[in-house]
Design a protein around this nucleic acid. Sequence first.
DNA 1: TTAATAATTAACCGTTTGGTTAAACTTTTT
DNA 2: AAAAAGTTTAACCAAACGGTTAATTATTAA
Lengths: 204, 204
Amino acid sequence: MSEAKKDNTEEKILIAAQSVFIRKGMDGSRMQEIADEAGINKALLHYYFRSKQKLFEAIFSKVFKQIFPDIKNLLFAERPIEEKLGIFIERYIDLLMKNPFLPSFILKEINRDPEFLASIIKKQGVNPDDILRVFEMEMEKGQLRKFDPRDLMINILALSIFPFAARPLMQIMFFDNNKKAYREFLIQRKETVREFILNSILPK
Amino acid sequence: MSEAKKDNTEEKILIAAQSVFIRKGMDGSRMQEIADEAGINKALLHYYFRSKQKLFEAIFSKVFKQIFPDIKNLLFAERPIEEKLGIFIERYIDLLMKNPFLPSFILKEINRDPEFLASIIKKQGVNPDDILRVFEMEMEKGQLRKFDPRDLMINILALSIFPFAARPLMQIMFFDNNKKAYREFLIQRKETVREFILNSILPK
DNA sequence: TTAATAATTAACCGTTTGGTTAAACTTTTT
DNA sequence: AAAAAGTTTAACCAAACGGTTAATTATTAA
């Protein structure tokens, strides 16, 4: 029985596990529920991934990569910085609209087990310094107002991610719990955030 | 036995429950751990609060109130809007620095059980429309650039809350996991966020 | 002082949970 | 075709969990 079948089952498990973990987090998820959603026996989960922890680590690593979209190619391209930032923001919010549970999941788990997070980051060779250096270079060239590039990075992430992470609360408070209205708002927001960020960093 | 002793035990439970729930969330918390931290028998928890759910609701309601600080008095004061917003941002970030686990806790739980959240909001009579209306009035007076006041509100919250909610990740990525450096950054940020927001809304 | 009431605990209970085992079934190898 | 290896399942297990019970201790009321 082989690659074909094995891959198939393993993939069914990964898909189901991602769906459950991402919605309920490590603590809130049950192995039985994952097995049910994958349409297999619970023992099979342990046959493919020895423990809940191991299965979770596989999913978290996979999902974590998604939140670092293909930013480097974009960032090192030969384009004006305001264009690059605009494109990044739009793409990032698009990514989140397609994966609305992602922000809440990541925030939950990085707070639950920060040390595990640190080990993942090391393994993946994420290098934020490259990004910060791009900003610093633009500042020196006079294309950007001067300030701590980490603030800029965190501002971009905050403005993009927060409306998804806090969605239920925002939706109730400011949109009468109208799902469609909030969705429209998020689409609009791609432009709003872009303007907001660019307005704050371009030299007056 | 009475008020004195009863209050004392009840309060010990509330303090312990808040400490545990806020760090580990509903799913991650154990009644035994709360009992231990309160220095009492587990059965006492059920004697004072019938179930884990009930105890959690008591804590969540209490904590939830804290994230709506005394904003109304401030907002309806007779002051220039930029002054009011500046003060609000500073106070809010101060509040979060004193309660660093609050953002992650709230975000976790509003996503876990949004309907319970809705019921809490109703009970507490939070009225965000009042706030939005203040912004709209300032726009009509020409004191603020015109745009969706909900964006402004969400931007303020995002910029203030996100650095706390995503703290472990940000600290590792941008600060070499240096706790002190990140703390300094957050203190600085009170000013940064204020400038950032005001710069974005005051008429050019 | 004592009866009644409230607070507190140790021991227990049923269920759920992550995980294991041994057997059955399927595919591959010889 | 039969043995070996890999895959899948039903049944089971021990630990952890939220919650209950019955008895004990402390406080209040008579």
